[in-house]
Amino acid sequence: MHAVCCIKQVPDTTEVKINRKTGTLERKGVPSIINPYDVHGVEEAVRLKEKYGGTVTLLSMGPPQARDALKKAMTFGADRAILLSSRVFAGSDTLATSYILAEALEKIDAEERIDLIFCGKQAIDGDTAQVGPGIATRTGVSQLTYVMEIEAVDFTKGEIIVQRKLHGARERVRARLPALLTVVKEINELRRASLPNMIKAARSEIEVWDEKDLDGEVERMGLKGSPTAVTKIFPPAPRDRGEIIAREGDDPEEAAARLVELLVVEKVIADI
């Protein structure tokens, strides 16, 4: 089995600064973590490796600091980590990102056939959930989003059965391998890193690839390859400040009666 996990380094907080000119994120000085959903993808891949044997490769695109995220993710027991880093990749929107990642996956696949690709259901900084489907579409593998359980995998037959988390339902799907799974947190409980894996991770080399390592066209990467552009960034419009109808020390019964009254007057709740 060969699983590739796509991980993204994201700011640990949403209190981040934005470059008003380019509309891109200023990452300087903001602590970073691995996107919390992606970690569950790594965990799941390592579990499969423990059961079936094989390789887990980590793949991330980002600035040189994203190396830290890969090192951290290696402690789960992955075998190889590749960082896609280049000025050419900077400013990529989701379309360009999935293009670059798909090109890297093609190269990895040529070296060792890929069975499964894992992504988190979305990244907490952008919340778009677009890169997973983008990669699946470009590579032509089966797309399985919001996976909450892998029921069975048959690598000889080339099939997987998963449960997808839908709104108010779960869906059982069988799909051909290779497949791309975007996972939700419910899929597993994260392990604590074992000492041997921590040592292995500390000693691991992170391979760094840039556009010259890939086959793809540079016009389709980075800002140039991104059809969308941010034209304006502004603070959210404040909602009209309402009315404080009771303060500390006021009688709670009276406060409650007044609120009920107001809701009725406003016809929010129709007259009784």
Binding site: T14, V16, I18, G23, I233, F234, P235, P236
Partner: peptide, 8 residues
């Protein structure tokens, strides 16, 4: 960015 800003 978590609703801190709006982007067009």
């Amino acid at each position: 960015f978590g609703g801190n800003v709006m982007a067009t």
